[in-house]
Design a binder for these strands. Sequence first.
DNA 1: ACAATAGTGTCTATCAGACAATATCCT
DNA 2: AGGATATTGTCTGATAGACACTATTGT
Lengths: 223, 223
Amino acid sequence: MVWRDDSGKALSDYPRPSLAVDVALLTVRFDDDGDGQLCVLLQQHDDGSASLPGSFVREGERLAEAVRRTVQGKLGLTTRDPRQLSVFDDPGRDSRGHVVSVAHVDLLPERELAGEGAWLLSPVDGTTVRVPGRRRSLRYDHDQIVAVAAGWAQQRHARRPDPSRLLDGPFTLRELRLLHEAVLGVRLQKDTFRRQMIDRLEEVPGRSSGGPGRPAAVFRVAR
Amino acid sequence: MVWRDDSGKALSDYPRPSLAVDVALLTVRFDDDGDGQLCVLLQQHDDGSASLPGSFVREGERLAEAVRRTVQGKLGLTTRDPRQLSVFDDPGRDSRGHVVSVAHVDLLPERELAGEGAWLLSPVDGTTVRVPGRRRSLRYDHDQIVAVAAGWAQQRHARRPDPSRLLDGPFTLRELRLLHEAVLGVRLQKDTFRRQMIDRLEEVPGRSSGGPGRPAAVFRVAR
DNA sequence: ACAATAGTGTCTATCAGACAATATCCT
DNA sequence: AGGATATTGTCTGATAGACACTATTGT
């Protein structure tokens, strides 16, 4: 039984914009030196352009569901804790019609990126995406979405240690700092960083070993 | 010429949720003692319930336009600088069907509230609305929207003096502090408050007069 | 020994919170 | 004079940034 207004029309009888979700999936990629780089996962299109994965929200579907379905379907990956960012509503942003998009962000650890080739991993400098190839920018307004997503990730890493559990198992303060430096895109001083984080960490038995220098204590995020 | 996909369907041929905007219009009401109270403007319904003003977004319309139209049409008021808060997407939040709503907030000075009776002014304590009458809460999920809106206003007033220009013309630090106390819902110490704000203010020639006590310097927001 | 990293001590500048002293009006 | 408010001084505690010193490893 569908609801109808005074003129006998259901909600679906009125012309209205379509609703979509776009997802900026961020990750930190580490090279052999231990240096990290914040990256965003892009879809590569036949015409050489790139975009964030996105799709239309179905009737009765929650945004979080649409996000999970999109990431699973277009990239073959599973989201962990997608967050809503903001709504992009320029009626001309999509040439197919009036599409209002709710931008989302999620942070994935590099190790969960399985299935080579289904996506493109593009570095994010500060809050700007560097797309490889001729084209400098993404389809639609997706450059803006990446910028907002990167800013969100940076705020999130400002005070809390590894808020998205990107590190696998216990870690040293050096590893934690390299992660935060990658997300923030700046160098951090080890002593200040240590004092900011130490209260939110729990020491774990054992020591780091292998590399040069004094072995470091090993921690996990408290509680 | 409408865009069509491979199966010959336009975007509007797919079932999809409706899109709406809801607006939490906040203001600060001052009593004769100079004490202020953060309030939200509500629509009163025939069944005694109350809600925020809201309406459906039309095809080709921007969210900001829908907000302006809604506030003008339902309350007879004009928005100044509406901001997007977040999206409420529970498919069951509206009994008429699947309605996804983008919550907005705007702050209006009390003097711009003309046309008595078209609305209800409800005090907000902390981030909670106190609705007069039997019912304790608002329709739909509008209590949540008010909470987010109040939190937004409080963050906005944490460091910047009168960010929404609620004060009319030059003001004393006392008047500014009473405004911020009303929005934040807490008492502020005058000396600390002065030192936080003074750098962002410009002194204006003249002094306050009339009340008891030493006349105060008069300021406006810098730049 | 030397390079490299870990961990800690300390100094300075800044800032919030709190208290208080002085200044200047009104009644 | 006395009450009320404005304005400024000062003390304390917390914290960020910077520098440096000691500690402990591998080569």
